[in-house]
Write a protein that binds this DNA or RNA. Structure first.
Lengths: 337, 337
DNA sequence: TTGTAAGCGTTATCAA
DNA sequence: TTGATAACGCTTACAA
């Protein structure tokens, strides 16, 4: 006994297939009586619409595609991705969308997968989990005008959809927090300045200092080669060779771990350190790391919201700002060490 | 200008659509000459097959469905899942399959999603990332005879496909390792004994002791209420109240953390501790935790292999055993603390 | 409000 | 080795 089709339901309930289809879609112009009858028939026959056939006929798949950039095995990134995926899943479910995913090893591969998704007509929209500096994927998707949203702040927010934290304010708050705890000489160690994130956080740092009447000392500002522990270590050594600040803010937990390592080596303990991204390691290593939670799940959630609105031509803003949370731990409570 | 279809290619290359289709599929009964011509036409027109149409016509989607059980926010589990997903993605890519995923909050929801995937005819197979004790999903999938594979050892391996570690041997190796380092009184703290994993690891523990001529002391074997740090703490206290072993093996890092906590409270340092699952925390907290890596990526990889073989009616074994790796850290090197 | 009929872009069956 | 032609199961103008 084969699976029942729309025709079976039509026959059973004495209407035409198109009527059944209208019931499935939830079309308004259908009498309550027949709607009832059709629904019952569907129940009786245990009918479930064939999504593939629907997709073909309507040329819409109700599916979103996700590419997970997995260069190396960045532990923090892992955490970020799975949380973002959760948020994406939650909102997609609510709005009746399916999700496809694939891991990619490089930006080129990423682009290949995206093209495949689109050309095969498998997805109605794409979510990019990271905004690269000069992003091939963003470029491509924009050029063919395909619905997509980006997590992170793209360099050129033409009319693309994006979700990000307020990185300026996040860092601004961190600085204020440190000043209120009596810190006076606060150093900044960021990832590469070519990244928008870094720029925004640096701006937050500088503005906060100025607004509180503190000088901005260039010697206390360092640019890491990347977001790694090594970069943090190197930057911190450079700073210590010049002068000893009483606090260091970074743009990533990994950088912060490097800072702590450099301090340990020099037997320094009384410098406050703040990271970013609330990694697992930060919560268990000694000393536990004060950090900023960027709420990946929400980032995922809203990016999904944006693409779907776009796909469905719903009126919608073109970006969301997700709040950050400062998580206070031992590295800003030197007395607890 | 619309996207070219198979008809356009057919016209362009002067053959019938069916011939083009045969080229796409890679059918053997097609002359080299026409194959060439059709390929060129596809290139020229930038033609890409519509996957949805193919699915409808062939009633096969080349897609696998994944459900991510996300009760609570188990940090270890997060790590496990993303790694397993990576392995799944790698193998799926290689074999030309797409992946759909969805998060679920409960076993019931999980079942609902699975049914939806199947009834909507979106997927050809399912991968279950955890084998529950009496698993509703396994039961359902078996009952309708739908292709699926399970990561973990199902209670009743009828003719279902599964991938798992050799938990017996993994623990056996741990015990041998400890004995070789001079440990004589080794305690066992497991998760609930109702889990197959626990049983297998316990058996490995007991057998290893016996084979080395050590007695198995019931007082040194404890069953945790679950796999949590608290459970580990409680069990360790129970053991310490009776006698002090010189090593404790557990079936999960969380349990091990509980053990360490209990030791700390009693100011005990010279007991070796071993966890399972190689969680991030274990590598950064103090002391760093000796643990067993279960290789989630491989588990994902092979589970994918199994379902796809099944889907394609390929001859294949019905399970894989994935090796484990002992990761030696400070908790089994008391001298380093 | 409902039905008719023509797609949607493939694959599969049967002939040739 | 190739080509007609009928599915595949649904949506959607257009009519009624």
């Amino acid at each position: 006994m084969k699976k029942p089709t729309i025709k079976d339901v039509a026959k059973y309930s004495g209407v035409s297939p198109s009527t059944v289809s209208r019931v499935i879609v939830g079309s308004p112009k259908i009498s309550h009586a027949t709607k009832q009858r059709v629904r019952e028939a569907m129940q009786k026959l245990d009918y479930h619409p064939n999504a593939v056939a629907r997709s073909l006929a309507s040329s819409t798949t109700k599916t979103l595609g996700l590419i997970l950039p997995m260069a190396g095995k960045n532990l923090f990134a892992n955490q970020f991705f799975i949380q973002a995926m959760k948020g994406i899943s939650v909102r997609a479910q609510e709005r009746g969308y399916y999700l496809m995913y694939t891991f990619s090893e490089s930006e080129e591969q990423e682009l290949i997968f995206i093209k495949d998704y689109i050309r095969s007509r498998l997805v109605d929209g794409i979510i990019l989990l990271t905004a690269r500096h000069k992003d091939l994927c963003i470029e491509y998707l924009t050029s063919i005008n395909f619905p997509f949203a980006v997590i992170g702040h793209p360099v050129d927010t033409g009319d693309i959809l994006w979700v990000d934290n307020d990185n300026f304010q996040a860092m601004y708050k961190v600085i204020n927090y440190l000043i209120e705890r009596g810190r006076k000489e606060i150093s900044f160690i960021g990832g590469p300045f070519s990244f928008n994130v870094t720029q925004h956080r640096l701006a937050g740092y500088e503005t906060a200092l100025k607004n509180r009447g503190f000088p901005v000392n260039g010697a206390l500002i360092q640019e890491g080669a990347d977001f790694s522990e090594e970069a943090g270590y190197t930057c911190m050594q450079a700073i210590l060779s010049i002068k000893k600040p009483d606090a260091v803010v970074t743009t990533d937990d990994e950088l912060a771990f490097g800072v702590l390592k450099a301090m340990k080596k020099e037997f320094i303990e009384n410098i406050s350190v703040v990271g970013f991204n609330n990694s697992i390691r930060g919560m268990y290593q000694k000393p536990t790391l004060t950090t900023v939670d960027i709420h990946p799940e929400e980032l995922g959630f809203y990016s999904t919201e944006l693409v779907i609105n776009k796909i469905e031509n719903k009126e919608s803003i073109d970006h969301y700002i997700v709040e950050t949370t400062l998580i206070e731990r031992e590295t800003t409570r030197p007395e607890h060490r």
